[in-house]
Nucleic acid binder design. Sequence first.
DNA 1: GTCTATAACCGGATAGAC
DNA 2: GTCTATCCGGTTATAGAC
Lengths: 207, 207
Amino acid sequence: MDKNRNTEKVILEAAKSVFIEKGLEGARMQEIADKAQINKALLHYYFRTKDKLFENVFSMAFNDVFVVIEQTLAVETDFESFLERFITSYTGLLKKKPFIAQFVLHELNRKPERIVANIQQNNVDKEKIFGIIKKAEDSKIIRPVSPVHLITNILALCIFPFVARPVITGFLMDGDKKKYDQYINERPEQIISFVKNALFINNSDRS
Amino acid sequence: MDKNRNTEKVILEAAKSVFIEKGLEGARMQEIADKAQINKALLHYYFRTKDKLFENVFSMAFNDVFVVIEQTLAVETDFESFLERFITSYTGLLKKKPFIAQFVLHELNRKPERIVANIQQNNVDKEKIFGIIKKAEDSKIIRPVSPVHLITNILALCIFPFVARPVITGFLMDGDKKKYDQYINERPEQIISFVKNALFINNSDRS
DNA sequence: GTCTATAACCGGATAGAC
DNA sequence: GTCTATCCGGTTATAGAC
């Protein structure tokens, strides 16, 4: 039957949105069923238990986060445009799916073992990233850096504004949501110039 | 009675550890009772409901995160040493209480209204921070920057390594926990030099 | 494959003795 | 203040008809 894969897909989409919003324990099978416009029993027919359904959803979300990295790595370029393309697409993804990062980070902390299974499905070539960095370093384009620190720095700058949205809006912007939106729009270029200033040796003022 | 305040404290400590580990819905009153070595009924005697108990714990955790900022702001200094002291104490706090940031960020996303109540109890003088930045900017010590972007950049660099521990260990370090510990120890100086390079105009190579 | 009805379970909350 | 026993609502999961 091909109704089969279709219903399964519909369930997964519904489950994804509910789990991301409410977390594993906070989510209700009933709510997922409602959103998928089917009944609870069918959820169990397809996925057996809530936990198994959740694991499926988690893999999907985890995957989303990695796909961008893969895509950016697919194109062969120099360090500078790699940096620009990566930051632009990553903030772009998070702007479209703002809760995904928080969701993945949280559930990963709850059950760190999950990462082992998921990481192999997303075989991002991290040596390639290291290679791009090393090359830029060797040709004296950028200062000597620890690749791991650099990579986490960039990820931090991209992801944090989304996981900390309530604090940023509430504390730094006195609750003004328009300001937050504007801030998010400015982010890519702000991150890019911040990182470039931190790294590039030939520093004409880039700000 | 003075047994009173004592039991209350014991409960709060137990609740804190369980809530931070499991989240609001994931936590079980029974588990909290066990950890506090009392029975469930007593939890309700002291805090009435699970939600109220949680709110107490959340305020405590939220407070921890803000106290460091206050303390750093208390001392009057120039931008450079403010930067160093802030980054050092903030990563220090998170090293001692690694799960606190993830907890606060997650629960804040689930119920953003909470921030309003908590932010007033922690009246951090954000204008003072803006002032320090502006002053450094005006005296041409640092490049012109958007204060909000700069503040979030620094927080991101400090906090992210802790909320993303599983990914960093699992993906970037092939599961080697020793490497992660070493990475965390290197963090303060790495962040400091990264930020300084990004900001300071007089750029002798600081790496 | 999809539905309705219901079983089985779990966990927060309360009653009431001490 | 602290305990044991119990209630009660809600939620996952299953049985069984279509």
